[in-house]
Amino acid sequence: MLLEPGTPLKVGILIAPGFALMDIAGAHSVFGMAPNTELHVLWKDRHPVMAMPDFPCHASTTFDECPPDLDVLVIGAVGTSAIEDPQLIQFLRKQCPRTRFVISICAGALLLGAAGFLQGRRATTNLHLIHTLEAFGATAISGGEVVIDGPLYSAGPATGSFETALMVLARLRGEQIAKLLELTIEYHPRAPFNVGTPELAGPELTRQTLELYADFFRRSTETALEHYRSALEPQR
């Protein structure tokens, strides 16, 4: 599975209107700092897009220019308007099956669900969406660990971006390179308040965060399910 010495590591990182910057920042750092990496920041065009929270950027590579033989494709949460975009879903339906490793961070699972890539696979996501994965044909795995199922590496938000990237880097460049990168970026998270899971936070704080983002995730899920179900129609 290791790449031959001298072979570029081809990595695509999806951006889109309303994408969650924290979901891709870790993977961008890990792969971008790895030696001999060909990094493609992907969107359908090069027009500026705004991340969430506000952070303006633009793609380096359009969908039409994306190499068909990516080694890694990184997908994090995006805004509802991006999930509604059929061009994005079509790109994922075409690109995911021919990519060696697909990394899903947080609500990136909704995009993969919409594209049909979760069907029959074990996967995880954030606490707001874990209960929705079965509707996309997946087996939902909670607990906060990186979940590996064949080419799919899925995780929750924030630190999951670093962890999945380091694990996939080890598969492609070897464990020694991955260890070197982990030390170089001094990846050793220590949560200041130790409430980063529902179990640690307790029911009241968990209820508050679920309520805070309930409308956003409900709209995003409904949109993703429309794509998924429409793709299933010819099979029925």
Rank of each mutant, 00 (worst) to 15 (best):
M1Y: 14
L2A: 12
E4R: 15
P5A: 06
G6K: 04
P8M: 04
L9M: 03
K10W: 04
L14I: 04
L14F: 03
A20S: 11
A20C: 08
L21A: 12
L21D: 14
L21T: 13
D23R: 00
D23N: 05
V30W: 08
G32P: 03
G32N: 03
M33K: 14
P35H: 05
E38K: 07
V41C: 08
D45K: 01
A51D: 10
A51I: 11
M52Y: 10
P53E: 02
P53T: 00
P56D: 08
P56N: 06
H58F: 13
S60I: 05
T61D: 03
E65V: 06
E65P: 08
E65Q: 10
P67Q: 02
P68K: 12
A77V: 09
A77T: 14
V78P: 08
G79Y: 00
A82R: 02
A82Q: 00
E84C: 11
E84S: 12
D85T: 05
L92K: 06
L92F: 05
P97D: 01
R100P: 05
F101H: 14
F101E: 09
F101M: 09
I103P: 00
I105L: 01
I105M: 04
C106L: 05
A109M: 05
A114H: 11
F117N: 01
Q119E: 14
T124Q: 05
T125V: 14
T125R: 14
N126A: 06
N126I: 07
H128R: 09
L129H: 13
H131C: 08
H131Q: 12
G137R: 02
G137M: 03
G137C: 07
T139R: 12
A140D: 07
S142R: 15
G144K: 00
V146R: 01
V146N: 07
L152Q: 15
S154H: 07
T159N: 14
F162P: 04
L166Y: 02
G174D: 01
G174P: 01
G174E: 01
Q176F: 13
Q176W: 11
Q176L: 15
A178G: 04
L181W: 13
L181P: 10
T184S: 12
I185V: 07
Y187C: 05
P189A: 02
A191V: 09
A191L: 11
P203Y: 03
L210D: 10
L212E: 15
L212F: 15
A214E: 14
D215G: 13
F216L: 11
T221A: 07
E222L: 09
L225A: 15
E226A: 12
E226D: 10
A231R: 12
L232W: 11
Q235R: 15
Q235I: 15
